[in-house]
Amino acid sequence: MINYHNKKFKAISNSSNGEVSSEVVFHYIQVGNILTCEYAGGKIVKGHLIGLVDDKGNIDMRYHQVNDSGNIMTGTCKSTPEILPNGKIRLHESCASV
């Protein structure tokens, strides 16, 4: 299992209707297979996620966030890791708003 504890991530791309930008910093905390995260930046004032990490490092998570217009957004996301040649982790995500 990949351990995401204390790792920070930034988006490099997003869907056309998404609010996540390269200004958003995701700070992951992992205990066992439970992953939590706080994030903020760009149009997102504050966000949290909670998820489960499987044996291959895939993450099944739920998120909620407040944007700079005062709207609450919630959704689900599945992340698949890719280990880059430099040892860094790139997450490929498929997310859906609820």
Score class of each variant (00 low, 15 high):
Met1Trp: 02
Asp55Tyr: 09
Lys46Arg: 15
Phe26Ala: 04
Leu35Trp: 01
Cys37Met: 02
Asp55Cys: 10
His5Val: 02
Ser21Thr: 15
Met73Ala: 09
Val20Glu: 07
Gly70His: 07
Asn58Asp: 09
Glu82Met: 03
Ile50Ala: 13
Leu52Arg: 10
Gly57Cys: 05
Phe26Trp: 14
Lys10Ala: 11
Val25Pro: 00
Lys10Gln: 13
Gly70Arg: 04
Ser79Leu: 11
Ser69Gly: 04
Asn3Lys: 07
Met73Ser: 14
Lys88Phe: 05
Gly47Cys: 11
Val98Trp: 08
Ala96Leu: 12
Ala96Lys: 12
Ser69Asn: 15
Asp55Gln: 15
Ser69Lys: 15
His5Gln: 08
Ile59Ser: 01
Val24Tyr: 05
Leu35Thr: 08
Ile59Pro: 00
Arg90Met: 14
Ser13Glu: 12
Cys77Phe: 01
Lys7Ala: 03
Lys78Asp: 05
Glu93Ile: 03
Ile59Asn: 02
Lys56His: 13
Gly57Asp: 03
Ser21Arg: 05
Val25Tyr: 00
Pro81Thr: 10
Met73Tyr: 11
Cys95Phe: 05
Thr74Cys: 11
Ser97Thr: 15
Ser21Lys: 01
Asn67Met: 08
Asn71Ser: 13
Lys56Cys: 04
Glu23Pro: 02
Ile2Ala: 00
His92Lys: 13
Val53Thr: 14
Phe26His: 12
Tyr63Trp: 13
Asn67Val: 11
Asn33Lys: 14
Ile50Arg: 12
Lys46Ala: 13
His92Val: 13
Ser22Glu: 14
Val66Thr: 15
Ser13Trp: 11
Thr36Val: 13
Ser97Glu: 13
Leu84Thr: 06
Ile59His: 03
Ser69Trp: 08
Leu49Phe: 01
Ala40Tyr: 10
His27Phe: 08
Asn33Phe: 09
Phe26Lys: 07
Ser79Thr: 03
Cys95His: 00
Ser69His: 14
Leu91Ser: 01
Arg90Ile: 03
Asn58Arg: 15
Cys95Ile: 01
Ile50Trp: 05
Lys78Gly: 00
Lys88Arg: 10
Val25Ser: 06
Leu52Asp: 03
Tyr63Val: 07
Tyr63His: 03
His64Thr: 13
Ser79Met: 14
